[in-house]
Design a protein around this nucleic acid. Structure first.
Lengths: 160, 160
DNA sequence: AGGATTTCTCTTGACGTCAAGAGAAACTGA
DNA sequence: TCAGTTTCTCTTGACGTCAAGAGAAATCCT
């Protein structure tokens, strides 16, 4: 009997016409998401980064040298709107983590590149972040993690 | 090979020292969450409600007649801060969905109650919302939904 | 070649959230 | 009893997000 079970019990009493099984699943999903987000942001904050900033730096880092992508490329990788991406790049530029350089191939566009400072920050942060991710799922056995990953993959496939 | 697999492949090339299996699970979790949130908000918006507003109205509704709770009770149910809850109640009060009434039992506190308009809005919205929730998980078989729910419950239990 | 369309980034304004803390009322213990 | 502590709500200021759209460059089509 967890928090979500108590919510479902209330609905069953008040609206017995509703079939609330999916609400249970989605309710647990949502609460779990809030806990995971909090823990992930806490660790990134220890390295001076927000999740928004980290996502951009990590996308640049994993794209490989010379660690440069256009805002449009970053956009395609991150499920946010263009206005959000502009804001993220602005913040990172202010703190010297990235720089905007001219895109020789396209005058409408620009390239966002990691600075040495940004590269150092993301190398340090990603190591801690990956360790933290291990910790966050360690309550599940390897087989359970595999099973959960498979189910998430299947459901995710219906949206992308 | 989905979007998350491509991210993991990049990391494996750039940072082969990292074990990115948990990143895959959490990455799918995060992307799925974004899709689910978008769909849920779309349906609630059709009924004139944000998710924030709906959560408060739904909490009041499922608490049973007379549909009144203190901000603190609402806080305990919703994983947000007190400032956020004040703002949510303010917005709902502006649109006439809830009203603040004196709490006879505690002078520091107040009771937030559904108005007839708020009750009508939430009854309509919750029906559509539950239908939508069914739709969102229907790509999984009943057994898979059960399995996913169990795994989420187990992992969630480590945080609450 | 050049007008129409598309692509790409940025701007604006509104919204929801949090962290930190203030103020008022209720408890608690000597 | 009453000073100190706790509880409860609200305020403030900053942040991240989105939707809608503007402006500039590239591309397409005749």
């Amino acid at each position: 009997m967890d928090h979500v079970d108590r919510i479902l019990a209330q609905w069953s009493r008040e609206r017995p016409d509703l079939d609330v099984a999916p609400m249970g699943l989605l309710g647990r999903f949502g609460r779990l998401r809030a806990h995971l987000a909090r823990e992930i942001e806490r660790v990134l904050a220890e390295h001076g980064l927000s999740r928004a900033s980290f996502d951009v730096l990590a996308t640049l880092r994993r794209s490989g040298a010379p660690y440069r992508l256009s805002p449009g490329d970053l956009l395609a990788a991150t499920m946010v709107t263009s206005g959000t991406m502009t804001n993220r790049i602005d913040q990172l530029e202010k703190t010297g983590m990235v720089e905007r350089v001219q895109n020789p191939g396209d005058g409408r566009s620009v390239l966002v590149g990691l600075t040495p400072k940004g590269l150092a920050a993301v190398e340090e942060a990603v190591t801690a972040h990956v360790e933290n991710q291990h910790r966050l799922v360690e309550a599940l056995s390897p087989a359970e993690r595999q099973e959960l990953d498979s189910l998430l993959r299947k459901l995710l496939a219906t949206f992308e």
